[in-house]
Design a protein around this nucleic acid. Structure first.
Lengths: 205, 205
DNA sequence: GTCTATAATCAGATAGAC
DNA sequence: GTCTATCTGATTATAGAC
C-alpha cells in the first residue's frame, strides 16, 4: 500500500504554526498599544486565550516574543516591497514604503520597541529570521536611496545611511501619535503632512 | 538690636534646594541613559549618595522624580530662549533652539520619556511647574513659527502645530543615537545632517 | 531628614500533573 | 502541549528608630 506524506505530522505542525501566528498577532497588537516594557506576558496569554506556561513552550522569553513579532514585521515589509510596481521611480518606491509604515502605525499595527533596552536589543541581534529580514529590507531600500540620489531626486549631500535611518524613524515618529491625539486631522492628512515634512522639509521651497 | 532675615532658615532651605538639585541632576542623567522604565529609584538614591527613604521625603513617587526633571528641563529651555540674540530671524531662532536640544541629547543630558506610559503622563499633566514651562516654551516657539511662515521662511502649508511637534521630536529622535552608534560621524556632522534633513528635507533642492 | 529594615506587589519564568 | 500552582527576583514604597 502506498504511504501518504505523513499527514498526521503535517496537520499537527499546521496547528502549531496557526497558534504561533495567533500569538505573534497578539504580541504585535500589544507592542503597538503599550510598548515592550508595559506589555506583560500575562496579557499576551490572555489575549491568545492560553495559559502563560503554554506560551513558554513556544517562545523562550518575553524578549523572544517581541523578536518574533519584529521578524514577522520584516516579512510583512518584504511582501510589501515585492508588491511595489516596478515602473515606479526609486523615490516613489521609498515614499510609498514610508507611507505604508505610517499607516501601519496609525492603525495600531506597528510594534514599537524602545531604542535603548539592552536585553531586547541582544535578543534581536541573535534572532536570525529578524536580522536576515532587516538586512534584506535595508539592502533594497538602500539601493533605491542611492539610485534616487544619482537621479538627483534625493539630496546626495546626505549619506545614504542617514537617509535610511530617517525613513525608518518614521515608523516610530511620535509626531504621528501627537497629531492623531490632537484630533484636528484625519489619518490621511497626518500622513500627507509628515510625508511633506520628511521629503520637502519645513522650509519654504 | 536689628534682627537679620532669618539666616538659619535660609541656610537650611538652601541646603534643601541644593540636595534637590543634585537629585534632579542624577535623575536627568539616568533618564537620558536608560529611560524612565529602566531607571530604578535605587539607582537614583545611589547616584545621589543618600538612602532611598530619604528620596521619598523630597519626592512622592518615581513619576514625581521624572516630572521634576522635566520641569527642570523646561527651565533650562527658557533660559536658553532668553539668551537668544534678538537680532536673529525667527527661523534662525528655531534652528538654533533645535540644535541646542540635539546637542543636549548627544551629550547625554536629554531626559527622554516614553510617549505612551500613562501613569507618567498623568503625573506630568498635573505638575504645575512643568506644564507652565511647557506652555511658555510652546508659546514662544509657536510665535516664531508663525512669524517665519509669514516671512516665507517656513512652509505655510504645514500647520504651526505640526511644525512645533516636528521640532520637539528632534529632542528624542532615534536617528541621532543610531548615527552616533555607527561611529561614522562627529557630533557636529550628525547635527548638521539632521538639521538639514529637518529643515530642507530629503529631496534635492 | 536621614537612616536600616521590611512590607507589598508585581511580573517573568518554571514544576509537575495530565 | 496544555494546564494550575508556585517560585524567584526585582522594585516601588513605607515603618519606625535616631
Amino acid at each position: 500500500m502506498v504511504t501518504h506524506a505523513t499527514p498526521k505530522v503535517s496537520f499537527r505542525s499546521q496547528m502549531l504554526l496557526a497558534r504561533e501566528r495567533a500569538i505573534i498577532q497578539t504580541v504585535n497588537r500589544l507592542l503597538a498599544e503599550k510598548g515592550f516594557e508595559a506589555m506583560t506576558v500575562d496579557q499576551v496569554a490572555e489575549g491568545v486565550g492560553i495559559a502563560k506556561a503554554s506560551l513558554y513552550k513556544h517562545f523562550a522569553s518575553k524578549e523572544d516574543l517581541a523578536a518574533a513579532a519584529m521578524a514577522d514585521l520584516m516579512v510583512q515589509a518584504q511582501t510589501f516591497l515585492d508588491g511595489l510596481a516596478p515602473a515606479l521611480s526609486a523615490i516613489d518606491k521609498l515614499r510609498t514604503t514610508v507611507e505604508w509604515t505610517m499607516r501601519l502605525k496609525l492603525d495600531g499595527n506597528m510594534p514599537t520597541l524602545p531604542s535603548q533596552n539592552s536585553s531586547l536589543r541582544a535578543a534581536l541581534m541573535v534572532h536570525k529570521a529578524y536580522m536576515d529580514g532587516l538586512m534584506d529590507v535595508s539592502d533594497r531600500l538602500g539601493a533605491w536611496i542611492e539610485e534616487a540620489q544619482q537621479q538627483g531626486a534625493l539630496n546626495p549631500q546626505i549619506p545614504a545611511i542617514a537617509v535610511l535611518y530617517t525613513l525608518y524613524a518614521r515608523a516610530c515618529d511620535p509626531v504621528l501619535e501627537f497629531l492623531k491625539a490632537s484630533d484636528l486631522f484625519s489619518d490621511d492628512q497626518i500622513i500627507e503632512m509628515v510625508l511633506m515634512t520628511c521629503f520637502d522639509g519645513l522650509r519654504q521651497r
